[in-house]
């Protein structure tokens, strides 16, 4: 069972309090009615499913109830960092810096 740092509760909590909620940073198009079939397919159906660094949404459903984002390495199953919903995707440099911190 993972420990996940909730950016709202500001501490690590056991994984069973959380629920995974799919890929992060897929914004719903503002004028969704106007987008093409291809764009809708990309928005709704296509997911990146990477090996390695993945950006995910989680919800602290049995805790503060907030949705937030996490950077997880799908190979090691380690959550590298979490951040509040709406915050931009962390840069490669930020992720690398955090990985270095974790290695210490």
């Amino acid at each position: 069972m993972l420990l996940i740092y909730c950016p709202y509760c500001k501490e690590e909590r056991p994984e069973i309090e959380f629920r995974h909620a799919g890929e992060a940073h897929i914004a719903r198009p503002t004028d969704i009615k106007a987008i093409s079939d291809e764009d809708f397919e990309g928005f709704f159906f296509i997911r990146s499913n990477p090996k390695g660094i993945a950006f995910e949404r989680w919800r602290h459903v049995h805790g503060c109830g907030r949705f937030f984002n996490a950077v997880r390495d799908t190979v090691s199953d380690k959550i590298i960092m979490t951040y509040e919903a709406g915050k931009p995707r962390p840069s490669d440099e930020e992720i690398q810096a955090r990985l270095k911190e974790l290695a210490l």
């Binding site: 914004a27 719903r28 919800r59 459903v61 109830g65 907030r66 949705f67 919903a85 709406g86």
Partner: peptide, 13 residues
């Protein structure tokens, strides 16, 4: 409730 919370928190905050 989860579905509505999801949209409220992340699409229409």
């Amino acid at each position: 409730l989860n579905h509505m919370e999801d949209y409220l928190q992340t699409e229409f905050p």
